Simulated assay, not measured.
Amino acid sequence: MTLVSGPTGPGSIDDFELFYARRALSRLRNLLGRQALLNLLADDLDKGEAFLRESARTSGGAFTGGTTVLSTRGLGAAAFVGWMDKAFADENVLLEAQPEHYAMVGQADGSVHVVENVGPHVCSFYLGDWAAEAMAWAEDAAELLPKADFPFKKATNLFLADGTIVGRVLIQFGDTEGGFTSSLSVYLPTSCSPEVLEHHLRHFAVEFRNWIVAASATLA
């Protein structure tokens, strides 16, 4: 189908739909509030925790990794990383990056409580303190890139409330001519299906694209 005439603003029908979908989702989130939304998701969260816990148990501490790579022009790596460090203090900025972000709440110890999809599962888990130095496990990761090319690195575990490690994240940023490259690696228990990993790589693409767009608009 081709849009022949009518709207005078830029964009395709897909762009229009995305705008209205985001606006409707934002309205519902704001009307419900975080706790009411989590109450609605209670059964899903129980199932999601069972999925992550069983995946960690049957994988015996082993993880499978995958990486999404984004190329950006018009913004430098240092500027984006600085923006992102501040953005993690604003839950609204974090929520708006991905439709399947339900809660992203900073904790007193520097960790972040995250409620989002892992594949088809709605899961509650924690990210460690992004401000900390890259964790020891990342030094041996196959996805670790040369510091000369990717000087901005952050690594953390994903863990349940009781400390059970259910995943890992390694994100790396390096400048290019006129922009920067993002290398975004996620590690899930080996017993997770390839489809679950694939969907999280797509999840990364959506959320980091939107964060980069937001950073560009703020820093322009």
Rank of each mutant, 00 (worst) to 15 (best):
I171N: 15
G174A: 06
G167F: 09
F152H: 05
G163H: 05
L158F: 15
I171M: 12
G167Y: 06
L170H: 14
P151G: 12
K153L: 05
F150W: 00
L144C: 06
G174Y: 03
D149G: 12
F173T: 00
G174R: 05
Q172K: 14
G167Q: 11
F173L: 03
A161D: 14
L158C: 15
L170I: 04
V169W: 04
A155N: 07
I165C: 09
T164H: 03
Q172W: 10
V169L: 15
G167C: 12
T176V: 00
L144Q: 07
L144R: 14
L144D: 06
K154T: 09
T176G: 06
N157K: 14
V169F: 11
F173E: 01
P146D: 14
E143L: 04
F173K: 01
T176F: 00
K153R: 11
T156Q: 14
L160T: 10
K153C: 07
N157S: 15
I165D: 06
L144I: 01
G163L: 04
R168A: 11
L160M: 15
A142V: 00
L145D: 09
G174I: 00
A148K: 10
D149Q: 14
G163C: 05
L144M: 07
K154R: 15
D162T: 06
D162Y: 07
A155T: 08
P151T: 05
L160F: 11
I171A: 14
G163K: 06
F150S: 01
K154N: 09
